[in-house]
Simulated scan of single mutants.
Amino acid sequence: MTQLLNLHLISDSTGETLDMLAKAAVAQFEGADIKRHFWPLVRSKQGLERIIADVAKHPGIVLFTMASGEIRSALEDRCRSLDIPAVSPLDPVLTALEEALGRQARARPGRQHTMDEAYFDRVDAIHYTIAHDDGLLSEEWEEADIVLAGVSRSSKTPTSIYLANRGYKTANIPLVLESPPPDILFRLKSPMVVGLTTAPKRLIEIRRNRLLTVGERDETSYTDEDHVSEELKFARRIFADNDWPVIDVTRRSIEETAAAVIRLLQQRREKREQGDMNAPLSS
């Protein structure tokens, strides 16, 4: 029987960064029985003591991000007295940055969540992306940072939303065999157009699961192997004819696909900044 490990995440901010770090680390231990206890917005010793009481009842490992030196010291002292490991995963990163920059980090909780210009840009990107999902408002695609194109169920929408949360205005359009995309897609100059593709068998599986969720059990061209193959060939021809970069999402998570798109966009922008006028407009 696998032993249960309690993982306590304690933060003086929203805990979003800590939660992401914990998820990434836990994902490396497939099958492990890990129970996460999430404690955000811990900004007083009184609040900390209530949490420590639960930590004592469910001992394990404490991961924390704490800007206040006083509360951090209290947390470390209490964990030490309970013989419970307490780890601050951002410490090595901050130390390296302090040494490289020759200055100390500001101890302000939730500084990355300050409502600055970047915050409002991200909100604007989310609004734009939701409004331009599934081929909508094509006349406004020129305002996008990224346009994703691909057949139905090639993860365009979830990838678009993830990119929007990273601050990128993202439109997406389904490529339908029986209906060519609007001509404006091929005339875009500012956005980077990226093609998403996947393996036929994987796509059929996803589509069948989608139909089951809406109570549809009859086989249609939507899940027919020959038709799906033709759809993917149609999309790949469009990608190749327009020299768009292509990402195969078959074995990628949404996060991995988005990271690949962002990398392509950064490379494109670097070429533009270096004055490479021959850099493709859409790749």
Rank of each mutant, 00 (worst) to 15 (best):
S155H: 08
W141P: 10
P182Y: 01
L163M: 01
G167N: 07
E142K: 09
V147R: 01
S155L: 11
E140H: 15
P180R: 01
E143I: 10
T157C: 05
Y168D: 11
R166I: 03
S155V: 10
I184L: 14
A149W: 00
T170F: 06
S179M: 13
Y168W: 14
L163G: 01
Y162I: 03
D145C: 02
E142T: 07
S152P: 12
I184W: 01
E139I: 05
V151R: 08
L148A: 06
S179K: 13
P180Q: 02
K156T: 02
S138G: 13
D183G: 13
P174L: 08
E142R: 11
P182H: 06
A144F: 00
I146G: 09
I146Q: 11
N165I: 03
A171L: 03
G167H: 09
Y162N: 11
G167F: 06
E140Y: 14
P180K: 00
A171D: 05
T170H: 08
P174H: 05
E140K: 15
N165D: 04
L148G: 09
V176W: 01
S155Q: 12
A144P: 07
P158Y: 04
K169S: 02
E142D: 14
Y162D: 10
K156P: 06
I161W: 09
K169P: 06
I161R: 04
E140V: 08
I161N: 05
A164Q: 11
T159N: 12
R166E: 13
I146A: 11
D145I: 01
Y168M: 13
A149H: 01
I184G: 06
I146N: 07
L175I: 15
A144S: 10
A144L: 02
V151G: 13
G150M: 03
K156M: 00
L148E: 09
E143Y: 10
P181M: 00
V147A: 01
P182S: 07
D183P: 01
K169A: 06
R166L: 15
I184A: 08
P158E: 05
L177W: 09
E142L: 06
P174W: 05
